[in-house]
């Protein structure tokens, strides 16, 4: 959940990149770190195994000029994709404001995509959250590889809810589709924050740390 500090004039949001192992979550953050305006980002920190697989999470803070009079911070996290690290994924998801679900477009990875998406829904449910209300987008990564499923098939598999979410074909290694997904999820998060907070302000001001 977002955090507002009126004294520091700061709003913090948490974005999580989710998806199956080796789908390109860490690559998304690495490319953002490499290509974004350096003043807008902090260091990229990765806690990985010797084999460069994410063990704990990757973390990178970004700053945007989004809300008048406030510094707006987006804290970007990835989760470890490997199935055995589910407790870590739950931990990283705590207090999430928005999700980029990174799917691997290769046919051979389709069942892992579906499994990971179901795992995301289940882990959100455990913290009383649901994708129906949580801002999220889908990124269909690795479109440059041979033997990838058509986008409409991936939509059928992963984006088949009552409300169609924004989705982005991507080649994360080159940056294609990376900033599009990031900007869209950030906009959705901001829109939800404005809607919820300003509606509350119209009524009674509720002070809450929950």
């Amino acid at each position: 959940m977002s955090f507002v500090n009126f004294k520091k004039k700061e709003v913090q949001f948490k974005l999580v990149y989710y998806g199956p192992g080796l789908c390109g979550k860490t690559t998304n953050l690495q490319v953002i770190h490499r290509l974004i305006n350096p003043e807008a980002r902090g260091d990229l920190t990765s806690i990985a195994t010797a084999g460069e697989r994410t063990l704990f999470f990757d973390f990178m803070p970004l700053v945007a000029n989004a809300i008048e009079g406030f510094q707006t911070r987006f804290q970007l996290y990835t989760v470890p994709g490997q199935v055995m690290y589910n407790l870590t994924r739950r931990m990283v998801l705590r207090g999430v404001d928005g999700v980029v679900f990174v799917a691997d477009s290769q046919w051979s990875k389709m069942s892992e995509n579906v499994e990971s998406f179901a795992n995301l829904e289940e882990n959100l449910r455990l913290q009383s959250e649901t994708l129906q209300t949580l801002p999220h987008v889908l990124q269909y990564n690795k479109r440059d590889l041979p033997d990838v499923a058509p986008v409409h098939f991936m939509e059928f598999m992963l984006n088949n809810g009552a409300v169609r979410q924004s989705s982005f074909p991507a080649v994360a290694t080159t940056g294609e589709g990376v900033f599009e997904a990031l900007n869209m999820v950030a906009r959705l998060v901001l829109h939800k924050f404005m809607t919820v907070h300003n509606r509350k302000e119209e009524g009674a001001c509720e002070l809450a740390l929950v």
Partner: peptide, 17 residues
């Protein structure tokens, strides 16, 4: 503290360097 939040008129999210 009780003013509504407003998106910056020159709101920029994330762009390439």
């Amino acid at each position: 503290d009780s003013r509504p939040f407003v998106l910056s008129p020159d709101a920029q999210l994330f762009s390439l360097r």
